Computed example of a mutant assay.
Amino acid sequence: MSPSSPLTDTTGVPTTDVLIVGAGPVGLTLAMDLAGRGVRVTIAELRAYKEPPSVKCNHVASRTMERFRQLGVANRLRQAGLPDEHPNDVVFRTAMTGIELTRIPIPNRLERFVDNGGPDTWWPTAEPPHRINQIYLEPILLEHAAALPNVTLLNRTRVDGFEQDADGVTATLVGLDGGATRRVRARFLVGCDGGASGVRKAIGARFEGTAVIQRVQSTYIRAKDLLGRLPGKPAWCYYSVNPRRCGTAFAIDGRETWLVHNHLNPHETEFDSVDRDQS
């Protein structure tokens, strides 16, 4: 928890300018941006402080890195993720250990700012893209945001409901370690609580567009010997294309941890239709 605390109004209800629900990359980035503009921010997060995040994110786009540069964390992020010399290539094979069909060369961290000979080079910005998984990205954002004087971080805290009026929002917060309940008064409430957002559902907002783009079973694994079994030059992303099972695998630490995506076939209706050990 950061050292700052919300102010209190005349009724004893703690107040803040903005209450952010969710301390993932989006919520933390918003908190950092607002705090830098002098806005008081309170973040309510279900997880404990520094509890390991999901491995969902694998790549940070150039525009996002530009924002991180403005927020003062780009340099730290550049030093995290894959090892300096690990290729960031995308490779297509008949299987992860099979025949290589083609490869897209992408500069590693050491070469990112000097390599100008490939399809992912010559970025007209001081902050080109960066390969980094969320397990490395989020802790850096968390430490930076929690240290800001205008940010109060409430971990192990659930937003149980909220009421809006003409002047702001009053939210009910429940501590998950003991069940203590408190109310927080905010000028604005922002839902940064993921795809299953409780805030989104509470306000009646709905997704628009295609409901399901693809169905993918994701598995985070540790395989100490896999890197040594891969033919040719290593890569960051491996596409497997064959009649039995298509999918992708991403190098997480460049040594032994991987994120495996099995693309479900049309007849496979459930994520557990695929045997993770057999695929």
Rank of each mutant, 00 (worst) to 15 (best):
G72H: 11
D89Y: 08
N133E: 15
H144N: 10
P107V: 03
T121W: 09
N116H: 12
P128N: 06
M65L: 15
I99H: 09
G81Q: 03
G98P: 05
F113K: 07
H130K: 00
W122Y: 11
S62K: 09
Q79S: 13
L110C: 10
R63V: 15
H86V: 06
A126I: 10
E66M: 09
R131P: 05
L110K: 08
E143W: 08
D120K: 10
R93T: 10
G81M: 08
Y136D: 09
P129E: 10
L137G: 00
N75F: 10
L82G: 09
L77P: 01
L142N: 06
L137E: 02
E85L: 06
R109Q: 14
M65K: 04
T125K: 13
R78D: 05
A147Y: 06
E127I: 12
L142M: 10
G118H: 15
R63M: 13
Q134R: 03
A80I: 11
P129K: 08
S62P: 07
Y136H: 15
Q70D: 14
V114G: 01
R76S: 14
V90N: 11
E66A: 12
E100W: 06
A145Q: 07
L77D: 04
E111H: 03
N88R: 07
V90E: 05
L82C: 08
R67Y: 15
P83L: 02
N133Y: 09
A95G: 15
G118A: 14
H144F: 15
Q79F: 04
P107Y: 06
D115F: 00
V73T: 12
